[in-house]
Amino acid sequence: MKTVKLIVVGFGTIGKGTLEVLRAKHRDLMEKQGCDVRVVAICEIDGTLVNGKGVNIDSVLKAAAAGKLRDHPDWKNMKSLQAIEEIEADIVLELTPGDIKTGEPGISHIKKALECGKHVVTSNKSPIALKFQELTALAEKKGLKLRYEATVGGAIPIINLYRDSLEINKVGSIYGILNGTSNYILTKMSEEDVSLETALKEAQELGIAERDPSYDINGTDTAVKLVILANSIMGKKISYKDISVKGIQDITPDAIELAGKHGFVIKLVGDVNGLEVSPRLVPLHHPLNVSGTLNAVMLDTDIAGTLTLIGHGAGKIQTASSVLADVIDIMKDMQDS
C-alpha cells in the first residue's frame, strides 16, 4: 500500500479539525483510496512535531488539549519553513490563519513547499486572493498541485465542483453569501428585531464571531473570497482593490423590518461578475436566503442553468471536509502517475 506523507502547517482550529477527521477516517482512507496517510510533521508558530513514520495523532491531539504540546516527545525546535524544506513529504497542508493585508506567513509557506517539490492544499484565503496568478503559475511550472477548496465557503465544494463537473459551462454570474458571521448577525436582527451591536455580542458569546469582527462586518472577508472565485472560476485577473466593498455596519433594524414587510431579507452578497460586495435585498423565497451561519453560492451557467449550493461556511470539522477532499484528489493523481 502506498504511503502518503503530509506536513500540517498551522495547528489552530482547522489544523486540529483536520487531524480529528484524519484520526476518525484513517481506515476509510486505506480501504477506499488504498493509501496509508501519515502526518510526518505539524508546525506550530514556535516549533514543530516531527516523526518520519507519522506522528501519533491521538497523542498529539490530547497533548494539545492539555496545553502540553511542547512536552510531546516529537516536539523539536524547528521553524515551519525549515520543516517544509527538510522533512520528506508529499503534500503540505497550509492551514495558518492568514493576514489579509500581507498574506503572510502563508505565501512563504506555499512558495517554499512548491519550490521543494511538494503539493499544497490550503484553507488560507489571503495568499490565494493576493497572489493567485503567481502561486498557480509556480505550481504549474513545477508540475505540482495547489488546491484551495477550503478558502471559500468552508465545506461547500464550489471550486472543485466547477473544475470537475462544470467546465463545459460558461459562468455568467456568481452570487454568494460567503461570510457566516455577518449572515448570523443579519438573521438575528431580522428574526429577533435586535440591533446590530446586540446580535454581534451574541455571536461573540457563542464563538461565531471573533473578538475583532471588523473584516466580517465591513465586507473585507467576503471580498477576499470573491477575488478567489473570480480568478478561479470566472477566469478574471483581478485583485482585492478592483472590488467595491460595502459592509453591513450601517444596516438598521428599521431597514430590515421595512425589507421584511415588502417580502425581502437583507443579506451581505458578493456579486462576482459585478465585482461588488454590498448589502442587498433578497426575496424571501430566493435560494440565497439562508439563515444563521450558513453560506450559499449561486452560479448562473449557460448549459447547466442555475445551481445553488448551501452549506457550512466555517467550523473546524466542516472545513476539514474541503481540505481532505483536496488531499484525496492529489493522492488520486499521484497514483495515476
Binding site: K246, D250, I251, S278, P279, R280, L281, H286, L288
Partner: peptide
C-alpha cells in the same frame, strides 16, 4: 442615478439582487 444620489446625500443603498 441612484448611486449618484446616494453618494451626494450620504445614503446607504440596499438594492435588490
Amino acid at each position: 442615478l441612484v448611486e449618484k444620489i446616494c453618494k451626494e446625500k450620504e445614503f446607504l443603498l440596499v438594492r435588490s439582487l
